[in-house]
């Protein structure tokens, strides 16, 4: 099985290389075919390693634009796949850096439609979030805040402790107990 897979991979790489060389000479059909094959390949490569499948689409778009901008840097004496994978890796890191530096991962409230769309695997289960919200609303204010920061908004225990003026261990214990309580409440 393995040798045939690697043969298929090699022949695919050879075809991409040929299309890339033709694209550099201005062949629009070869270029369109190349991008058409690259898009699902890149998306499938990315999707498994990202928290949100939509990001894979966004990064794929950025990679295709980057391939377009940097086409002149591809050298026909080199294989095509490492060249394109370097761009994929660069754009993925860039995307994630921007996302986390804007603290986008800490700005999604539970009732935000975008948050639900991107974090609830099956939107039909969104009702379960309502149950969780109800259970949370019954908790004391401070306990609820700790749980929300740690388990929902993605703060680290240290960050939450600083924000709430508590010790790190107290934050961890509180989050753990709340989780236990919620599990029992939602059984």
């Amino acid at each position: 099985m393995k040798p045939s897979n690697s043969n298929a991979k090699a022949s695919k790489s050879a075809i991409w290389k040929e299309w890339a060389i033709k694209a550099q000479d201005g062949d629009k059909r070869a270029y369109s075919a190349l991008l058409g094959e690259l898009a699902p390949f890149i998306r499938n490569y990315l999707v498994g390693g990202l928290a949100n499948p939509d990001w894979a689409e966004d990064i794929t778009q950025e990679v295709l634009i980057s391939v377009h901008k940097s086409l002149a840097t591809y050298s026909p004496d080199r294989p095509f796949r490492p060249w394109v994978m370097a761009i994929v890796s660069f754009r993925r890191t860039d995307f994630l850096r921007k996302h986390y530096s804007s603290r986008g991962n800490k700005q999604s409230p539970l009732d935000d439609a975008d948050f639900l769309r991107t974090h609830v695997t099956n939107p039909a289960h969104a009702g379960e979030y309502k149950d969780i919200e109800e259970a949370l609303s019954e908790l004391p204010e401070k306990q609820r805040k700790v749980f929300q920061m740690i388990k929902i908004e993605g703060y680290t225990a240290k960050e939450a402790a600083t924000e709430l003026d508590m010790s790190v261990s107290a934050v961890k214990v509180s989050a753990h107990r709340t989780m236990k309580k919620l599990k029992e409440r939602l059984k």
Binding site: G26, A39, T60, Q61, L64
Partner: peptide, 21 residues
Amino acid sequence: QLDKLIENLAGELEPVKRLRH
């Protein structure tokens, strides 16, 4: 939208001068 992007990029393609060694 991805297909549209590919179509646009292919439409914009001009022959490029390869970067020298």
